[in-house]
């Protein structure tokens, strides 16, 4: 191969394999930087205004009560949405592995995985109807079973509404979580370890927590990252079920960002909220990317 041909080949490779991705990345990161830029501008109303005002909007943000309610709610989403899902999925996945009941695994997996194909708008619509306090499904069933004392206002009670919203999230992500954990069970080393522990007479619960959990750290770590990011950027469920109500008791940062930017036209302020959301997600994404990088280029 002559040098000219070699160069031409390299350029063609670049044009075909790299350039499309490069364009996408430049656009994505360009827009990301642009969001930062807007957040330190004075853009209010529908007309762009790029007068530099420093951290004005961030200062305002930290003084607003609603911002802190949102932060608290986002933390509730993390607390109730991540660890319990992980734990529940771990137990179900383990049970699926242990039992050799015919069809049990296929049935259960299909059963809990189908919501993964549906949108939050659809699940939100269904669950709004389940939760409806007066005529809704759950309260009707409880009344029918004469368990009136268990009836609740669900999403209409400002103190607990967020938890009922998180439950929808858990319901929807449980299937994916089980599948991911199950696949990390499937290493021969782990299977051998479990078998020898069984022969030694270790109880199944002990095997789960002392042998399996430490050995599937990687899978759990990845799943946790996935759940944290999904819980952090949650928007659809809150939008469709409560729209942040009653009052703004179920509001989250993502919804506030949408309302501030597109309904109140406080664009710079909304961009500031986006930056906060991005930074929180970024903190999770970085270790995740490092982990993926090590596996990719080993």
């Amino acid at each position: 191969m002559t040098r000219g041909v070699f160069m031409r080949d390299k350029i063609m490779n670049f044009l075909v394999f790299v350039l499309p991705l490069l364009i996408v990345l430049v656009l994505l990161y360009g827009m990301l930087v642009w969001t930062f830029y807007v957040s330190v501008s004075n853009w209010r109303g529908t007309r762009p205004n790029f007068e530099f005002v420093g951290l004005k909007w961030y200062r305002m943000m930290f003084q607003i009560d609603r911002f802190w309610v949102d932060v608290k709610n986002n933390l509730k989403w993390l607390g109730v949405g991540v660890i319990p899902t992980l734990f529940l999925a771990l137990l179900i996945a383990y049970l699926l592995e242990l039992s050799n009941l015919k069809g049990f695994e296929t049935y259960t997996r299909t059963l809990i995985l189908y919501p993964a194909a549906m949108s939050f708008i659809v699940t939100g619509t269904i669950w709004s109807w389940m939760y409806q306090p007066d005529k809704g499904v759950l309260n009707t069933i409880l009344r029918y079973l004469h368990l009136n004392s268990l009836q609740s206002g669900y999403i209409t009670n400002p103190d607990t509404a967020t938890y009922w919203l998180v439950l929808i999230f858990v319901w929807q992500y449980l299937g994916i979580s089980v599948v991911i954990i199950q696949s990390s069970f499937r290493s021969t080393e782990l299977q051998e370890m479990v078998e020898s522990a069984l022969i030694d007479g270790a109880s199944r619960l002990r095997i789960l927590f002392q042998i399996i959990v430490p050995n599937i750290r990687g899978g759990l770590f990845i799943l946790m990252g996935l759940l944290i990011i999904s819980a952090l950027k949650v928007f659809d469920i809150v939008y469709i079920v409560t729209f942040g109500g009653p009052g703004y008791s179920t509001d989250v940062l993502a919804l506030f960002m949408y309302i501030a930017t597109f309904q109140q036209h406080l664009v710079a302020f909304g961009a500031g909220l986006s930056v906060v959301i991005f930074l929180m997600a970024f903190a999770v994404v970085v270790p995740y990317t490092i982990y993926a990088f090590r596996r990719w280029f080993r």
Binding site: L21, L25, L28, Y29, G30, M31, L32, W34, T35, V38, L226, I229, L232, K233, F235, A254, M257, Y258, T261, V267, G270, A271, L273, S274, V275, I277, F278, A281, F282, V285, V286, Y288, T289, A292, F293
Partner: peptide, 16 residues
């Protein structure tokens, strides 16, 4: 760069 943008919250680029 791809890894970081993989789970980028859409809010982060919505305004631009």
């Amino acid at each position: 760069l791809v890894g970081i943008s993989l789970y980028l919250p859409y809010q982060a680029i919505l305004v631009p």
